[in-house]
Design a protein around this nucleic acid. Sequence first.
DNA 1: TATAATATAAAAACCGGTTTCTGTAAAGGC
DNA 2: GCCTTTACAGAAACCGGTTTTTATATTATA
Lengths: 340, 340
Amino acid sequence: MKKTIYDIAKELGVAPSTVSKALNNSGGISERMRKRVVDYANKVRYFPNSNAAKLKTKKSFTIGIIYSENLGIGLEHNLFSSILQSFKAYVEENGYEISFVVTNLGNRKISYLEYCMQKNIDGVFIVTSVATNPDLQELIESNIACVTTDIYHENLYTIMSDNTMGAKLAVQYLYDLGHRQIAHIRGSKHSTAANERYDGYRQMMEELNLNMDEKLIITSDYYSVDYGYKAGKKFLSYDTIPSAVFCVSDQVAVGFIKALKENDVCVPEDVSVIGFDDLEFVKYLHPSLTTIRQDTHLLGIEAAKKLLSLINQKKRNITGDKKVPVELIVRNSTTVKQDS
Amino acid sequence: MKKTIYDIAKELGVAPSTVSKALNNSGGISERMRKRVVDYANKVRYFPNSNAAKLKTKKSFTIGIIYSENLGIGLEHNLFSSILQSFKAYVEENGYEISFVVTNLGNRKISYLEYCMQKNIDGVFIVTSVATNPDLQELIESNIACVTTDIYHENLYTIMSDNTMGAKLAVQYLYDLGHRQIAHIRGSKHSTAANERYDGYRQMMEELNLNMDEKLIITSDYYSVDYGYKAGKKFLSYDTIPSAVFCVSDQVAVGFIKALKENDVCVPEDVSVIGFDDLEFVKYLHPSLTTIRQDTHLLGIEAAKKLLSLINQKKRNITGDKKVPVELIVRNSTTVKQDS
DNA sequence: TATAATATAAAAACCGGTTTCTGTAAAGGC
DNA sequence: GCCTTTACAGAAACCGGTTTTTATATTATA
């Protein structure tokens, strides 16, 4: 049978409160007594009921994870699961655990905030989400510490890859290879990252005095291979096709290239393609994909560090953001502009 | 401020127990009263403190997930995160949530079982693990309901792909293509799935009366691209190389092919390669990978169904297993045996 | 009509911890 | 040597629910 603090107390002939003080090292007790209790507790392998402790202390040592499965990205998505993995490892090392914020508990619908309050969640890591979700708004405006990799908000700390810079690097690189007609397959307008990449694209195009025909920009709604494929088909329907394309994500690039290949348009000879993310497998593709690498490990660690510090300093409503550098990874899906 | 059941009771002029009965629909109360309380609770958006409820009821509506990060597989691994995703979706639909079983909580080391008892975990899904882990043994031998995709044990329900059949399908297919020298890159001896695939390979080789030189079998320890690459290097060191290879996983196949390519050995012309898993991206590789597909969705759903039923029927110590069918996916990394 | 059975709601106990309050003994100050 | 702190340990209250027990009003039974 599972022992309680009362069992321990009785067996040692001391008060339950004494046992609690000993195990939590919270003082008000002699060192001799503390050691006696702790030794005995270890000997009988006592471990506390965490629900009872949480009930009283209102601290759960739990971080909520918001991982919206819209936008075609779930746990399977290599990029986010990788960020989550390093986040998880870091917080676990610090004695916290993670818990997915769900909206149906038991049998009733609840909001994000309700979930967090119900479970005394200490802080929330918003991995992916839809910025316009009213549930999310409610949560952000509460005084629960939140960190995100996805959106900006005045009541939120944001850790994000330097998307704008990444896009600029991509365009600059294509320019350096001699390309002048550079298309962009952009992501959903509801995705902050997609918007930033789009901005970076526009900025660099302007800086380089390149023509920005509206036809150069194709919107691909979601970060999926399918949408990339559709974008590729649209691209191919043009009378003359640009010689270079910057895709909002690797997934989109993969679908895009697939469409091109099907129509015997060669990558990189006919069209240079550059992606974004550097998903683990893109180096094994043919051609291997030139892309902008996101530092998923660092993103996860930084988010974890920041969130834990927000939780512990008790000063809430802290806003701000940190840009994590990105890196151009040159592979074989891009090449110098061919004569045509 | 967060309302409690006492606030509700006071505001309605009833007893706390009455409120509890109303909200849980547990009888002993008039329908009129029940409705009155429920309506009011909804109106003021009351939601219960789950820690208090868990403390009393000892039911947590939480499933523990064991996801060992040894064997080179973490959350990033597409196969397991995909199984977990569908598992998670199913149990959440049924009012449960998932929680990763960790071994350091607060600041002390705890065992799997201790974690589960401490948190009143209702059941455990062992996604990946090391069978010899003593922590795992302790958990399995407890009376907490456990389901796994990874190992067999007399006190455990196992949902696993039909690995043996998959391996046989692979060998048979290579045989049908005319190959007679069929090598196998096997996985770690600590992995049940790897062992089953190895068994299937041997069985089919015997059935087909094929020579099974020890050199045909290379051990690749972990399910990683790196190990596949190393296996490929070893393979290339042979005087005469077999014309076909069955790899224990797609990851290993990818590394294996990489090594071959580096030495100008062509896939599939010189060597046909077949993998196992059908990870999402392998269809985009060049050559696209012929492989044995695991039905990750079904694996996750079946595991969830079984676990929830074990939890609810209260009859523990139930053992058994279910084999989920696999499927040969023919792509371009395999071809008929060339004259040599 | 008197009595037993039933329905309903309140009161109280409980889950297993943590924390505050209280009382006593030992240590420190002058 | 007397009074005040301080150290220590036990008692009790509390966290916010659920469940059991008790009390009362209502209905059924004879």
